[in-house]
Amino acid sequence: MPLTDGPALKMEGVSVYYGAIPAVREVFLDIPAHKITAFIGPSGCGKSTVLRCFNRTNDLIPSAKVQGNVFFRGVNLYSKKVDPVEVRRRIGMVFQKPNPFPKSIYENIAFGARINGYQGNMDELVETSLRRAAIWDEVKDKLKNSGLSLSGGQQQRLCIARAIAIQPEVILMDEPCSALDPISTLRIEELMQELKEQYTIVIVTHNMQQASRVSDKTAFFNAEATDQGGKLGYLVEFNDTVTIFTNPKQDYTRDYVSGRFG
């Protein structure tokens, strides 16, 4: 189902607290469908925290509290009627460190489908998912081997295949290449370009070259010191990637993307 009009994801005044301590304040964002949106910013500015609001994985941290509204195709993800498990089925996630399950490559893919009650042909699904994640040729002869036997880059593509297998509409990526070498990173970036035709992608990255290479839109986050000595993240600027990197409106953004701090 192509999403041509309207943003895929929308944040309206989202603030996140850990206990009583605010971590991110009042983010307003429109994430376009079938585009790659990058979140950049220094450590501790809350990019990952904001990302986790989209699939409600912040719910898993007992002390975390999310205020404001997050809309997925117009549905408020934080309304009482919405089940977080259903949210995560539609909005997949890939983590910083590849985390394949200690199961066979086949089972790594089949697991998500099975627990979500997939009725179709499992062999077919496993093959398509692995093909789309550009790892099929490397693993087709050893589907019974452990997912952990693969190299780091392969493991991360396996994790992408695993996320694709439950047919989400959005894929969140939390620094997916930070544990990988440049060649594996390149493969993942190429893969993202192919995937964006079918999926909306949001990626958190520390690597500004990566953001400028792969993304269509870029959100720059920064952190300000709070009275209690903590850090409070906020969205500084959100625009087309080209604009952010060549002609940003805020001085902070200009300093950051030109490498003057961070």
Binding site: N55, T57, L60, V85, E86, R88, R89, G92, M93, F95, N99, P100, F101, F111, G112, I115, N116, C159, R162, A163, I166
Partner: peptide
């Protein structure tokens, strides 16, 4: 987290 992220 990997499991939860798949809707488990």
């Amino acid at each position: 987290q990997g499991g939860f992220a798949l809707g488990a």
